[in-house]
Each structure stands twice: as structure tokens, then as C-alpha cells.
Design a binder for these strands. Structure first.
Lengths: 269, 269
DNA sequence: TTGCTCCTCACGTCACGTGAGGTGGC
DNA sequence: TTGCTCCTCACGTCACGTGAGGTGGC
């Protein structure tokens, strides 16, 4: 006869679990001391404990186990129980598998962004910007409406998207409410115009650029730097200016705005 | 603005769940009527609801989701969360898989027993019993000690077991306490004698047999029939008699004793 | 005496579900 | 008025875990 502690070590079930199984009547001690209330278990109960553990591993409920171990379930009924449980397990497996693979996708895309934004130069740069095919939605409104514009274009352009989201600002000044904005994505091939979404080639050329780190509210600081530089160099800036969102709120997680990365590009003559 | 019921239809989350997510602060209504307490949701919250659903599908806890959606987790931290969750999911999958395959094994073995016991003849039969290689443990004791004897032999003979458990009764009379019993299994090859477990060839021969259906306590009825028949036929019975357990308490489930099937075999001259 | 094991009882966990009892708008 | 939707509050679920407060044997 083993005390509950010894039996716990043998059966690899916690003392609490053993007491619970006693309460539930699926693993009753072989002897209980009337005075102390101590539970004692025989060697033969080890086997029963192992069977219960096995069934619990198979996700059977305590009630299910009680019924199955009661000894008065017919074979056919027992088979039904087992097959039902097998189905449940199979469902669980396939669910977990799809969840795992979409999680994998998300992890990959975050890693990709991390890789791409690892070796960024935060200085003002003069560089050549390439031509791109651009699918965009142009509207007049507030700056914070670009989010829904991206969604619109995203739905249409879908799998042809070939780079980071970007916006074109056609105004030469800052406008609170009625800004002339085009928001969209570079795409791998020209798409048919559709519900306000237009495709065109954005000509590249010589540009001055800077990568802004931080929330969008502080973008003005980087604009200031950039235009001061352009003025010093006596360049002439061309409209529209562009913002490329290297790292932003993203599709799923908002992220920390302090870590947002936005490249401002101004074409020059 | 949608009422909670409308939003429930759109988001495919129950009203109760939406109220709970409100309480937990992970999906707060966009407007709450002060008088009625009615919750109202905007279109933009649909997306958030979908993200939460996705994360719940991936088995994230409400607290985990709250943290991840708070917007102030760094990328590295976020990646850690996601990878941790991925590990959890992978563990869950592999656990469920092993559970499912052992369940499959059990189902198969029960089906096998069902098949084998489907077309059984319950009449007294005269038939030829074949020679078998038998690994057994012989002891003097009570009938209900055969269980542990089977276990002993089972552990040694393991994968060489090639048929149903059987016992040999060497006494010519019924003994309550000091019965001379050998319990074991037919095996596919002769094993070395070891800790009281002995291997030998059980010679077959002409026999009278009957299949007993029901608990072991009622076996005496079938014995009576069998020996009455032997007497009538003027056969001479040979010792030991055998019991072959076609269907019994089994390795895992006790089953219903009313359905136990035991073949009694008595060799005759 | 001390330390260890055992006991019971009540409450906590997690993500909701289930009602009871009541209100408000069409 | 009726039927429907919404509300809050309290309690239930499932398989234990956590701790408080206490006992008994070495």
C-alpha cells in the first residue's frame, strides 16, 4: 500500500489530481484510514492510473473516462466513443496545423521587414529613383484617410503588389483638410483602371531622400531637414513628393509608432 | 454604427463574447448610449474583431492579445511572442498526433476482436486442437490471480504473443484457494525460461469444446454441460483442461462481463 | 520539538455560456 | 400590446491549482 504521495510519484499524477479523481470516483483509493482520512493505494491501482492518464492524453473528459471504465459499455458503444474522440482529435490537429502555418507566414513577413530595415541610412541622400508601375487612388481629404485608401487599392492590386506602400502629395504646401493625395502600391504589371483606382508609370530620376524614424506626427521635422538641404544645394524640387512606408502600422499589428520608418523622396531638377 | 446584434452577425462572434471582449478591454464599442447602455460598433471595428478571432484561433490568450494589440510591443518582443506561440502549437500538434495514432491502434484492436468473435458457435463441439508453443507461468493460488500472471508473462513474451490468453487447470476438481494453474499466451517462437516463465509445446489433439458467454462466475455452467457431454459420449477427459479467453477484461477496458467469451477445451482419449 | 506529509474547505483559473429579471424602441 | 433586442448580475463549466488552517506519525 502506498500513501498518496508515493502513489503520486509512481503514477506521475499530482496529489491534487489524485484527490480530484477520488472525488470524481474514477480512481478511488484502495483503503482509507477512518481516523486520519489518509488515502492508501495498491499496486493494482497504478495500472488504472496509467489508463486514465492515457485517456486524458487523448483528451477524453473525466465523465467520458468514468463511463468507459465503468465496465458496462457495450463494444459498439465503446467504439463509437473512441471514433468520436478520434474525429475530435483529427479536427484539433487540422485546426492547429492551419493556425500554425498562418502564424508561420506572419512570422516570416515580420522577419522580412526586420531584414529590410536593418541597415538603413538615416542621413540625407542624393540618389537615383527608378521608374515604377504604380496603382493608386487619388483623393482630396485629410492625411489620415490614406489608411482606407490603401485598403481599397490593396483589395484590387492584391497579389501584384511588389513593394512598400507609398503616397504622393500633389500640394506644395501643408493642408489640414483638403490635401490632394494619391495612395497606393508599386505593382508588377499594369492593371485595368477600376472604381477610381488608376495605374500609371511613375517616372523616377534624381532625388533627395531621407528616412524618418518615428510617428507620422513628427514627419515635418524630416521634411524641414530635406527642404533646407535642397535649398542649400540650390536644387529645384518637383511635385509630387513621395512618402514610402518602410515600416508602419502594418496589416495586423499596430507596432510602436516610435519605430515607424518612412522614406521621404523629393525628385529634383 | 451597428448594434451589438448586427455586429455579432458581421464579426461571427456571439453577443456574449463581444460583451466579454468589452469587459476585457480588447474590443471596446465605438459608442455607448448613456441612457440605455446599448453598445454600438463602427465598420472599422470589424477588422479588429477579425484580427482578434484570428489570434484566438491561434490559441493566444486574451491577455496575450491585449498586449499584442496594445501597440507598444517592440518587433523583437512581438516576434518572441509569436514564436513562443508557434512552439506551443507545434507541441500541441505532435501531442495530438501521437494521441490520435494510439487511439487508432486501440480502435483497430477492438475491431479485430469484434471480427473474430462475430461468427462463434456456442454449441458443444468436437474438434482437433493444434499444437502450440506456449509461454506460461505456473502457480498455486486463487483463480483471480491469473490477471497478474498474464501481466508477468505479457511483459516477457511481448511482441511474440500470437494468440489469445489461455490458462491450464491441472486440478481435476474445483479448488477455492490452492488451485494449480498455469497462465500464459501462445507465442510465435520458443523463449528462454526466465523468472518462473517457462516455454513448452502444448500438444493438441482430439477435444471437446464449448464457448461460454458471460462472466467468469458462471463458467461452472458451461463446465457442467461439457462434462455431462463427455460422460454421455463415454470419452475420457485428459488433464489439464484449458480456458481460452476470446474476449475478456482486455488490456485497457473491462467491458461488460455479460459479453465475455471464453472457450473451454478438454482434450479427450 | 521540528519537519514532513497528509487532510478538508473555499476560492481561483480561463473564456466564455446560461439563465433570471428587467428595460427600451418599433 | 406584443415581440424583439438589449442590458446587468450572478452563477456554471472543466480539470484541476492555490493557499489557509489544521492534524498525525517519525
Amino acid at each position: 500500500m502506498f500513501t498518496i504521495g508515493e502513489f503520486s510519484l509512481i503514477s506521475r499524477l499530482t496529489v491534487k489530481t489524485l484527490r480530484y479523481y477520488h472525488d470524481e470516483g474514477i480512481l478511488v483509493p484502495d483503503y482509507i484510514d477512518d481516523d486520519s482520512g489518509y488515502r492508501y493505494y495498491r499496486q493494482t491501482s497504478v495500472e488504472r492510473a496509467m489508463i486514465i492518464t492515457m485517456l486524458r492524453d487523448m483528451d477524453f473528459s473525466i465523465n467520458g473516462i468514468r463511463e468507459m471504465l465503468s465496465g458496462y459499455t457495450e463494444d459498439t458503444e465503446l467504439l463509437e466513443h473512441l471514433e468520436k474522440q478520434q474525429h475530435k482529435l483529427k479536427d484539433k490537429i487540422s485546426q492547429a496545423k492551419t493556425a500554425e502555418s498562418s502564424l508561420e507566414e506572419i512570422i516570416k513577413s515580420i522577419r522580412r521587414i526586420k531584414m529590410n530595415t536593418k541597415h538603413i541610412n538615416y542621413e540625407i541622400q542624393e540618389k537615383q529613383v527608378e521608374d515604377i508601375i504604380f496603382a493608386g487612388f487619388r483623393f482630396k481629404g485629410k492625411y489620415d484617410e490614406v489608411g482606407s485608401a490603401f485598403k481599397k487599392v490593396g483589395r484590387k492590386a492584391g497579389r501584384f503588389i511588389s513593394g512598400n506602400a507609398l503616397t504622393l502629395y500633389y500640394d506644395c504646401e501643408y493642408k489640414e483638410n483638403d490635401a490632394d493625395i494619391e495612395a497606393g502600391f508599386p505593382v508588377s504589371k499594369s492593371l485595368k483602371a477600376n472604381s477610381g483606382i488608376d495605374c500609371k508609370i511613375l517616372k523616377g530620376g534624381k532625388s533627395v531622400t531621407i528616412v524618418h524614424k518615428g510617428p507620422y506626427e513628427s514627419l515635418n521635422k524630416s521634411y524641414e531637414k530635406l527642404f533646407t538641404f535642397i535649398e542649400q544645394k540650390k536644387y529645384k524640387s518637383l511635385s509630387p513628393s513621395r512618402e514610402v512606408y518602410l515600416k508602419g502600422p502594418g496589416m495586423i499589428f499596430k507596432g510602436n509608432p516610435e519605430n515607424y520608418l518612412t522614406e521621404i523622396q523629393v525628385l529634383i531638377q
